[in-house]
């Protein structure tokens, strides 16, 4: 299953890269810089999606106490943090030519940054505890609290810099995006989702192997 996914990924990424640079026309006002959107937007979506899965599996762990939920939670958080980091970096690279600054406290980027901090905290918590039932329990609580905080963080960050105006960027952007650009965006989202699935299955298998090994050496005596 994973092998098929891996084989599928190679042409998908290559094709997606080719399409980004040779097929899709550059956006009129922003020029070639705008092409970073095809990495930025899918990474944001994948990051949010993985935190969402982490939330669900953390609730599942506290409810059912099955180790599988914990494995999924810690794997998705790690992948989510990586994609969140990619999103922040590409976002600020994109911001440099468009707003003439790397960091402009754009609400969505700021939310991503705070999420990044919360889940880096989650990974640190896992580092500072040893593999066991306590680690799974405590980090599940952090994941739940962190995910439920997202709407509040987003709302407050939007109000913070935009002086109460509801974010209109989303709605206007829809009209701005041309048809080939939109198709390209969806293709890159799909490619990124494939990559996410591949990484997740790898990470889960790695985690299972690590835990099996730890169990083995712990029960030797």
């Amino acid at each position: 299953m994973r092998r098929i996914l891996g084989i599928l990924l190679i042409p998908a990424i290559a094709g997606c890269g080719w399409m980004i640079f040779f097929w899709v026309p550059a956006e009129a006002s922003m020029g070639i810089v705008q092409k970073i959107m095809y990495i930025h937007v899918p990474s944001v979506m994948v990051a949010y999606f993985s935190f969402f899965i982490a939330f669900i599996s953390s609730v599942g762990y506290l409810w059912k106490r099955k180790e599988g939920f914990d494995i999924v939670a810690c794997s998705t958080v790690e992948i989510g943090v990586i994609f969140c980091g990619i999103a922040i970096v590409t976002g600020s690279i994109w911001a440099r030519p468009t707003w003439n600054t790397y960091w402009s406290w754009d609400p969505r980027l700021t939310t991503a940054l705070i999420l990044f901090l919360i889940f880096v905290g989650y990974i640190l918590l896992r580092r500072f505890t040893t593999y066991g039932e306590q680690q799974a329990r405590l980090s599940a609580v952090i994941a739940i609290v962190g995910c439920l905080d997202i709407p509040l963080i987003h709302m407050s960050v939007v109000w913070w810099r935009t002086l109460h105006q509801p974010s209109t960027i989303l709605s206007t952007q829809k009209n701005v995006i041309d048809r080939p650009l939109a198709i390209m965006l969806w293709i890159s989202v799909f490619t990124m989702a494939l990559l996410f699935a591949y990484l997740l299955s790898m990470r889960i298998e790695l985690e299972q192997k690590t835990r099996a090994y730890l169990k083995q050496i712990a029960n030797i005596y």
């Binding site: 040893t130 593999y131 066991g132 039932e133 306590q134 680690q135 799974a136 835990r211 730890l214 169990k215 712990a218 029960n219």
Partner: peptide, 11 residues
Amino acid sequence: EAVSKSFGYRQ
């Protein structure tokens, strides 16, 4: 009744 406990990897 049939109480068991494992802390992570250790039974």
